[in-house]
Design a protein around this nucleic acid. Sequence first.
DNA 1: ATGGATGCAAATGATTTGCAAAAGG
DNA 2: CCTTTTGCAAATCATTTGCATCCAT
Lengths: 160, 160
Amino acid sequence: MSDRIPTVPTPEEAEALLRNAGHRLTPQRLLLLDLLRTHKTFLDAEQIYELALKHEGDTSLATVYRSLQLFVELGLVEARYLDPEHKREYYRITGGLEYHYLTCRGCGKMVPVDPEIIQEAALSWAREHGITLLTAHACYTGYCPECTRRREKNRSSRSS
Amino acid sequence: MSDRIPTVPTPEEAEALLRNAGHRLTPQRLLLLDLLRTHKTFLDAEQIYELALKHEGDTSLATVYRSLQLFVELGLVEARYLDPEHKREYYRITGGLEYHYLTCRGCGKMVPVDPEIIQEAALSWAREHGITLLTAHACYTGYCPECTRRREKNRSSRSS
DNA sequence: ATGGATGCAAATGATTTGCAAAAGG
DNA sequence: CCTTTTGCAAATCATTTGCATCCAT
């Protein structure tokens, strides 16, 4: 991510990366990589596990966690805490756009934040300081446009 | 946080807020608020609990968690997952600058990110979209300046 | 053959919760 | 008084880990 968005690893690249780092190409790992490459959106470990079960997968949740951890270390997979409660971690194959969300305190909705502004600001800052940015994740809370409007109206009917 | 940094609540403001929302001014809550107002930096629940014990505090960890949750709902306290592992949550009194950190994948150091750039980008984006921003938190990982330089040197001695 | 990988079940660790006792308004 | 709050201990829940077995290489 020196300046451009990283690319999605091809199956060959992924396998080479595993190999070169001295890891084995087990059917479980290959299936997981395949599922992640197909299903580009963020998924949590449980969802990935259930996907694997549906696709002939002979695996366990522990293996899913261990594999995801390995993939993240190798840079094949990105992990994020996407919900504001940060209860569980979400994973996806490397190479997508960086997403940012605002969680509305009024209605609970998650509003996607235009990533370009934040990404550009972060990247130019990093460039100026000789920093290599690998991942950037932001969490916002506040009030979405509708709730902001509603609150502004209510401001006329003061309380205390 | 319409445009300016929010202010630290005074003891009176905090007590009024609790009162008006129908909550009781128990010694445990008052002590916690006091500790947080004094100790402006981010602390985790355990640290806050131990601080309370040191200061004559007759309380429990459960009460600390419950109070912190209440304070956050009332906007008196801000909660953040500051470390990239997101193991535990950190709390501080509302009103400080928003901090952002980059965690170096090389040496593990946490480099503070100049908050102004991100904050300005986020604020102007929010303003344009009629959004009220209450909190903004970002997590970065990458390589700090030293590790970036070291890696750039090593790039001459190619591997695969 | 053999060290890394798996599956299972048990462990972990931060946070939450049920409930009876205590205490704020 | 009466409802909220507390303290304790037990419960949660995502994730990790020990260990015996299995299997890529």
